[in-house]
Each structure stands twice: as structure tokens, then as C-alpha cells.
């Protein structure tokens, strides 16, 4: 590998040097030459974040492992082509999001044949206005389990933006780069994702309230009977 392939700029800034360990830029350079330790270093630097992204996106540990493995495999297969034009982490996350979206798309296609739905319909319906709508208010904080469940019910596009921005803390300009969209689009999609989540959380609350009413009715009817 020639020295001009050494990534510069964004890569060099992304990770601080740690004593006795390869910097990210050095690990990338060595991985481009097939150095096993460099591959492992890159995995240790980014594995947790990529795995977390996959897990939040699919909500299933076995599938998340499979996807994280696939994302890293693709990364290592292509690492020789990385020239450092963009930040390495952005490149890796774009690749990971694509791997996850491809999998979700396959699943959606399989589901479409069964229930005659499609993602674009789902996404447009998700953005519907509900001014004056909800009859229940979400309590002060949102329960983590409920939120995770609701995130899994989001259409994949909304889910990606929400996970990247609100869960993983990416900025809109980074998301725009990862998802290859405009910053405005990223903001708009995030807002729609949150609105859809709010709707789903309200649905959950209404369902729970209904079940409680039924249970109470059942209890009192049982008491009189």
C-alpha cells in the first residue's frame, strides 16, 4: 500500500492516541495491508457503537450480531479503498446503516406480500397531524421499555434517523452524510419520527387504559355475580 493511501484530516482527528495502542489512522493504514492486529483494533474502537446501532435498529440480539458481523466484513473487504475523504466513523456508520436497511427492506418485502402494505404508505400515514388529537398525555418521562417497543414499530427510515440522532447522538450534518440526504431532510424526518413515536406511545397508553377498564369491569361484574 502506498503512503498516499494513508487517511488524513477527519480520520486523524476522530480518535485520540492511547499509549501503547494504535491510533485509528495507523490502524486503518495497517489494516489496508492486512494486519490482523489492526483489524482487531478497528473492531475494538467501533464494535460497540456498530453493534448498538444494529441492536437498536432490529431489536434482536441474534440478528444484531449477524448484522454487526456483516457490517464489519463489508468494511474490512473495502478498507483498502478508503482514502480518508470522509471521517472513517461516518463511512463505517453509513455502511452499517445500509446493511441494516437492506435487511429490513428484505423483511418488509416479505411482509408486504402477506399483508399488502408498503413502507411509503406507512411513512406517509405516520406523519399525519393530530392537533387536538390525543386524549391522554404522556406522563412526564417516557418509559424506556415502551420507547424501545415503539421504536421497533417505526418504519425503517424513521427508525434510522431517530436511532442515529436521538439515541446515538449524531448531528444532522453527520446523519445527512451517513444517509446521503440533506440536513433539512434529516431534520424533517426526525420530527416525523418523533411525532410517530408519540402517536405509538399514546396508542400504548390508550390500550393499557382500556385493558385496565376491562379488568376493573370484569372484577366488579365478578363481584356482583
Amino acid at each position: 500500500m502506498s503512503s498516499d493511501a494513508v487517511p488524513t484530516g477527519p480520520v486523524a482527528r476522530t480518535r485520540p492516541t492511547q499509549t501503547g495502542e494504535l491510533t485509528e489512522a495507523e490502524a486503518i493504514r495497517r489494516a489496508q495491508q492486512g494486519d490482523a492486529a489492526a483489524f482487531e483494533r478497528i473492531y475494538r474502537l467501533h464494535g460497540r457503537r456498530v453493534y448498538a446501532l444494529c441492536l437498536r435498529m432490529v431489536g434482536n440480539t441474534a440478528e444484531a450480531e449477524d448484522l454487526a458481523q456483516e457490517a464489519f466484513l463489508q468494511l474490512f473487504r473495502k478498507i483498502a479503498t478508503f482514502r480518508g475523504e470522509s471521517a472513517f466513523s461516518t463511512w463505517l456508520h453509513r455502511l452499517s446503516v445500509n446493511v441494516v436497511l437492506m435487511r429490513l427492506r428484505k423483511k418488509t418485502l416479505a411482509a408486504t406480500s402477506l399483508d399488502e402494505r408498503n413502507e411509503s404508505d406507512e411513512e406517509s400515514s405516520g406523519a399525519r397531524k393530530d392537533i387536538g388529537g390525543p386524549d391522554l398525555r404522556l406522563s412526564g418521562s417516557v418509559d424506556r421499555v415502551n420507547l424501545e417497543r415503539a421504536v421497533q414499530r417505526l418504519p425503517p427510515g424513521y427508525r434510522s434517523i431517530f436511532v442515529l440522532h436521538d439515541v446515538q447522538g449524531y448531528e444532522h450534518n453527520e446523519i445527512a452524510s451517513i444517509m446521503k440526504c440533506s440536513i433539512g431532510n434529516s431534520k424533517s424526518q426526525l420530527h416525523k419520527a418523533r411525532m410517530r413515536l408519540r402517536e405509538l406511545l399514546h396508542e400504548d397508553e390508550r390500550d393499557r387504559a382500556r385493558e385496565e377498564r376491562h379488568a376493573a369491569k370484569g372484577g366488579s361484574a365478578g363481584g356482583h355475580g
Binding site: 448498538a52 437498536r56 404522556l138 412526564g140 418521562s141 417516557v142 418509559d143 424506556r144 420507547l147 424501545e148 431517530f162 440522532h165 436521538d166 439515541v167 446515538q168 447522538g169 418523533r194 411525532m195 413515536l197 408519540r198 406511545l201
Partner: peptide, 12 residues
């Protein structure tokens, strides 16, 4: 919406 965003941050 702020509560949802805060809960997302907690997840992260």
C-alpha cells in the same frame, strides 16, 4: 417531544 428525545438519549 422533548420527553421522547430525552428517553432516546437515555437509551443511548
Amino acid at each position: 417531544l422533548d420527553a421522547i428525545r430525552a428517553a432516546g438519549r437515555e437509551l443511548g
